[in-house]
Design a protein around this nucleic acid. Sequence first.
DNA 1: CGATTCTTTGAAAACAGTCAATCTGTGTGG
DNA 2: CCACACAGATTGACTGTTTTCAAAGAATCG
Lengths: 192, 192
Amino acid sequence: MNQFEHYLRAQTQLTDDDILRVRSCATSLTVRKRQPVLCAGDVCRHKLFVLTGLLRVYRVGQDGTESVMRFSAENQWAIDHESYTTETPSHCYIEALEDTTLLLWTKETMNELFAAMPAFRAFSDRLKDESHNKSLQRIFSNISHSAEEKYNAFVAENPTVFRRVPLHMVASYLGVTRETLSRIRQKHHQLR
Amino acid sequence: MNQFEHYLRAQTQLTDDDILRVRSCATSLTVRKRQPVLCAGDVCRHKLFVLTGLLRVYRVGQDGTESVMRFSAENQWAIDHESYTTETPSHCYIEALEDTTLLLWTKETMNELFAAMPAFRAFSDRLKDESHNKSLQRIFSNISHSAEEKYNAFVAENPTVFRRVPLHMVASYLGVTRETLSRIRQKHHQLR
DNA sequence: CGATTCTTTGAAAACAGTCAATCTGTGTGG
DNA sequence: CCACACAGATTGACTGTTTTCAAAGAATCG
């Protein structure tokens, strides 16, 4: 039993046979730091699971500004949900922020696994619900909290990730400039 | 055939019998303007479908500030996704902004319908994906666009709703104060 | 009409963005 | 091993935007 198998065992009620079957349908990918996994314009045809390393999903606006949609570290998933579900060209880039090892499944593979293992579909549905709930929470945070509150919440909820990520990417995740985030953080240091 | 039946016929491949079955499992509710449909603290036990009228889903922060998560008009759904999926007390209020007629299904009812009609589950899954995609798009909009751009996008995407809703609720949906939105709008009027 | 809700406006203060310069650490190639 | 390039972080001065507070105008509804 390896890492992904342990993850599924901890998260689901699947039998060991089922778990191995899911694992056996995955392809592997190793990506060096700063290398792309998905580029805007391509269709996101896979669900990605991070074994080691760290990914970011981001978009680039008209003016060239990057906006980070998500960080995905070990034992987390990454995907461009819109491109994956609609099978249309993605607006997103997915990039490795560290040397990263991944597992990948196509939608066709996933659908076969779902058909064969209802419990695996149920798990996937639960993940989707959780992901959607987090998105809604983030929307609420965006429209109701100050930049400082958002930063504190991000650090509290992502204690490991935030140490491994350049500050300007956290800023871009929160929707403020790097200078503003730098000054917010400065205030914190003074308080100690 | 009535309104909801036409909606399902247009949106799905369900047979007329199936459509009537879905409809027959719903309960009806009429709500007067300004009346609550769900209160924070209660568990959101139903999916709501708006036949006529208009709902808003909103949250109230520590400081008492309201943040509108969503407007739901005719032929749209309303729900507190987090409370519904986790069956925990809601952080949201759902309120009628006009006299409104609704259809309601409990999760148990929905699950029975899904089990009996795979095509209805598929439809529900598609709606969920679309809803999630819109949430992600809104997050991108929140972190990358100016207040003015967000207002223009809102008007473009919700041409009917925005005429029926008080300005301060649109402001609260966008995450700006009513004064700011009033001034943004004023600029537009000058340009004509 | 009177009350309530909603919108607008003005002025000041707080906040965030921009631009430019500097400082830091990291890692690569000579 | 050092020098240099590079990515990242910080700082200051300035500009622009948004909030806040207070007041006053519309609009709506019983």
